[in-house]
Design a protein around this nucleic acid. Structure first.
Length: 824
RNA sequence: GCCCGAGUGGCGGAAUUGGCAGACGCGAAGGAUUCAAAAUCCUUUGGCCGUAAGGUCGUGUGGGUUCAAGUCCCACCUCGGGUACCA
């Protein structure tokens, strides 16, 4: 029996025991209330870094807490094992991604075990496991057959030197390739998409169904970017300013149809397919060079309002007709109009849009206000509410009414219609890479695009391939992979060489965890019904948009296709987003290489001290600087508890028997208050204050037993047991060890303690007396006094009489049980 | 640029519903113990004025609402995250 706290020995012993006993294994027919805790699918980049430790500590705390509360807790773990880093490593070092990935998974698993995180390991898998790939591909084909997967052209980052597509992170800020230094081009290629836009409205509406941080919901809503307005045609003008009937009008989308009378020019995207048709001869060369320039500009730059706006657009030489006024207005190209939003062309209304205003000034266009600004308005474009002016039949209407009227008018005139638009774009899933899940499609010259038959799934990655320094996927040159018979006609055909975005793998893994060995389908219906939705999902706020959006889309689509139960609309009932760990002021990440490895700390102070430090340092949802961690303080605290809790403790042996005194009763009260406080703090994710409460309580116990009378042994024993119980989810090994020494049982199988409410309430209270809002006196009094009694007490205080001198209070505010404010 | 957050002592933070600002930890100082040190235990610790009692200022900046504002409202400043091929 250890007398001094030795974390290394204790921790490895308990870790082994939890696995041997299957303490955290749970079956699908478990009869306890189900509770599914999930930390976001980790990318195995090597041993756990501090960000992982933070994430998995919080998840583990919840798993252990809910287990003690009596739930059947599902706590699975797997690995998001496909991705760019393994492929880059292969190019650099020649190590096959499969080997590299396997090593990293082993390292990550080992460190998760070392921090004391517990899982049902029977359910583990990785994205690159054959079985998982098979069902990822099967789902692709399901979506394909429902037209939710399709091929289209899309613009990609193309490096002419490497002859390959680059990820955004491989493009440096100056627009060159990080590998070759060549200038990266935007190039159009055939790509696979998932039709997530089909679900845009549902993805907005169903946010009401989940208990997520408001800020994440808001980010999702903004990302989807629903807007309501009108789409209508601008007839092309002939040289005399009349309508040309021989060509179709230019379609534009606007959210401000009420300002149509103020449209004094129109703008189309430089990529618009009708550019060549609409640019006049004398403008052709200027337009061509402008298009070339814009092609290499990032979307972010294009949408920025910085820089010289005059240089960001060129005239086409053509004009279009404003259908509201029937007057011709000039047509421009400008970089800030994107082809993939709306119709790729806009009506420009400088009076009510600042960017249009700037553009109009730069290019000498007319400015007409169509909404009356307030009298004291001094700005340029006016975007606020007001009534329509200079707008013919819309004059006098407020914006909302004017919009509706304008849309009806457009519909009556057969010019256009009401239109809801989303900023959300379809999900580009093609990646021109090796280390990802192959897209199960075959191209046949005769029969065209053919899905791989289900019996031939999964399409496996060939192992015997060479990785070339250009980063070009080996799949594109591997004969054994490429050559395949067409499933329809049997003739020689070619495989698709694109693999899937790794976000696809992480869009359904939480479903597979419920039924990981199923060979007949991706998961069984009853398994999903038992466990889904995930009760608590935990991850970094950096995933607040993309991953969550994709996973939500998958869940909805799979339910609609009958793969998952129809009623499953949302995968994650509750979400907690924890903050990031920074080092030296910037985010810790594998790409920045500024990781702090937890190994040394685990060797030295142990996992429980490290866990405690993670919980204590900051509110879990906030970012934290590594420099602020107080590991030593936490280790010191654990030693302090050890010394008071261990049966050999001198402090314990000196305790007293017999009747309880007033101080003992106070400790009983504090003990019950501790239980109540920690329960509340765990439930509301306030782990830093929970740790503060552990420390505060321990300090109280120390002070108490060192008083002259000492502590009552019975009170002390139950105080310590309560402390160990509430600490158990946070410091699982430490609590388990002391508990076993003291009580010969397993603390993680104990029920969660319940506070005795009757022992919490104190009979006295400190009344705070303020004069003009400033604290002047405190009075100890019974906690059940009436307003009048409290007021009398306050006015009767010597101190208050002194402060008031002879002045008569104007007003006295009493808030029972403990506050009085005397206003002079 | 756009979207989303955050600013409280020397530092990380607490204050759950508008009601005692600074819980708890780190750091620092002093004391006990010790031959000595480590470890441990105890005490003090927002600024300024004051021997003290006490006073006064104080939650990024400037305004406002209120008996009362870290908390609510308006404007601004600074820092961090996301921005569709890093995961």
């Amino acid at each position: 029996m250890e007398q001094t706290y030795n974390p290394q020995e204790i921790e490895s012993r308990w870790q082994q025991r939890w696995i041997d006993d299957g303490t955290y294994e749970v079956d699908n027919d478990d009869t306890r209330p189900s509770y599914y805790v999930l930390s976001m699918y980790p990318y195995p980049s090597g041993p756990a870094h501090m960000g992982h430790v933070r994430n998995y500590t919080m998840g583990d705390l919840l798993v252990r807490y809910r287990t003690m509360r009596g739930d059947g807790v599902l706590s699975p773990i797997g690995f998001d094992s496909f991705g760019l880093p393994a492929e880059n490593a292969a190019i650099k070092t020649g190590t096959h991604p499969r080997i590299h990935t396997k090593e990293n998974i082993e390292k990550l698993s080992a460190s998760l075990r070392r921090i004391g995180a517990v899982y049902d390991l029977r359910r583990s898998f990785s994205s690159h496991d054959s079985q998982y790939m098979k069902w990822t591909q099967w789902i692709f084909l399901k979506l394909y057959s429902a037209s939710l997967a399709y091929r289209d052209r899309a613009s990609v980052n193309w490096c002419p030197g490497c002859q390959t597509v680059l990820a955004n992170e491989q493009v440096l800020t100056d627009g060159t390739c990080e590998r070759s230094g060549d200038l990266v081009e935007n190039r159009e290629m055939e790509q696979w998409f998932y039709r997530i836009t089909e679900y845009a409205q549902q993805l907005i509406d169903d946010l009401d169904k989940v208990e997520w941080p408001e800020k994440v919901k808001l980010m999702q809503q903004n990302w989807i970017g629903r807007s309501e307005g009108a789409e209508f045609g601008l007839p092309i003008a002939d040289k005399e300013g009349g309508k040309r009937e021989d060509v179709p009008p230019l379609e534009v989308y606007t959210t401000r149809p009420d300002t149509g009378f103020g449209m004094t020019f129109a703008v189309m995207s430089p990529e618009h397919p009708r550019v060549d048709e609409l640019v006049t001869e004398e403008n052709k060369s200027a337009v061509a060079s402008f298009q070339k320039e814009v092609a290499n500009r990032s979307e972010m730059d294009r949408l920025s309002s910085e820089g010289n706006i005059a240089k960001r657009g060129v005239p086409t030489g053509s004009s279009v007709i404003n259908p509201f006024t029937n007057k011709p207005v000039p047509l421009f190209l400008a970089d800030y109009v994107l082809m993939n939003y709306g119709t790729g062309a806009i009506m420009a209304v400088p009076g009510e849009d600042q960017r249009d205003w700037d553009f109009a000034v730069a290019h000498g266009c007319e400015i007409i206000r169509t909404v009356e600004p307030p009298e004291d308005f001094e700005g340029e474009a006016y975007t606020g509410d007001g009534k329509s002016i200079n707008s013919g039949f819309l004059d006098g209407l407020q914006i909302k009414e004017a919009k509706e009227t304008a849309i009806h008018w457009l519909e009556d005139q057969n010019l256009g219609s009401h239109r809801i638009n989303y900023r959300l774009r379809d999900w580009l899933v093609s990646r021109q890479r090796y280390w990802g899940c192959p897209i199960p499609i075959i191209f046949c010259e005769e029969c065209g695009e053919q899905p791989v038959p289900e019996k031939d799934l999964p399409v496996e990655l060939p192992d015997d391939v060479k990785f070339v320094p250009t980063g070009r996927s080996p799949l594109t040159t591997d004969e054994g992979f490429l050559k395949v018979d067409c499933p329809k006609c049997g003739n020689e055909a070619k495989r698709e060489t694109d693999t899937m975005d790794t976000f696809v793998d992480s869009s359904w893994y939480f479903l597979r965890f419920t039924d990981p060995l199923n060979e007949e389908s991706p998961f069984g219906e009853s398994a999903i019904k038992h466990w889904l939705p995930v009760d608590q999902y935990i991850g970094g706020v950096e995933h607040a948009i993309l991953h969550l959006m994709y996973a939500r889309f998958f869940t909805k689509a799979l339910a609609d296709l009958g793969v998952a139960p129809k009623g499953l609309r949302e995968p994650f009932k509750r979400l907690f987003t924890q903050g990031m760990i920074r080092l030296g002021g910037s985010k810790m990440s594998k790409s920045k290489g500024n990781l702090v490895a937890p190994e040394a700390i685990l060797d030295d102070q142990g996992a429980d001290a490290l866990r405690l430090a993670h919980l204590q340092v900051k509110p879990p949802q906030e970012d934290v600087d590594w420099e602020d961690f107080g590991i030593d303080g936490c280790a010191k605290f654990l030693n302090r508890v050890w010394r008071i809790a261990h049966p050999h403790s001198l402090l314990l042996q000196e305790s007293r028997e017999g009747d309880k005194n007033e101080q003992d009763e106070e400790i009983v009260r504090q003990t019950n208050r501790l239980i109540e406080r920690i329960t509340k703090d765990y439930d509301r994710w306030s782990y830093n204050t929970a740790v503060a409460a552990f420390m505060e309580f321990t300090n109280t116990l120390y002070r108490w037993i060192q008083t002259e009378e000492g502590g009552h042994s019975e009170v002390l024993e139950s105080a310590i047991d309560a402390l160990l119980l509430v600490m158990a989810p946070a410091t699982p090994h430490f609590s388990a060890e002391l508990w076993e020494i003291r009580n010969s049982s397993h603390i993680h199988e104990e029920p969660w303690p319940k506070a005795d409410k009757s022992k919490i309430e104190s009979e006295t209270v400190t009344i705070v007396v303020q004069v003009n809002g400033k604290l002047k006196d405190r009075i100890e009094a019974a906690s059940d006094l009436s307003e009048n009694e409290i007021q009398e007490l306050a006015l009767g205080s010597e101190r208050i009489k002194e402060v008031l001198t002879d002045q008569t209070p104007k007003r006295i505010i009493v808030k029972p049980p403990s506050l009085v404010n005397i206003v002079l």
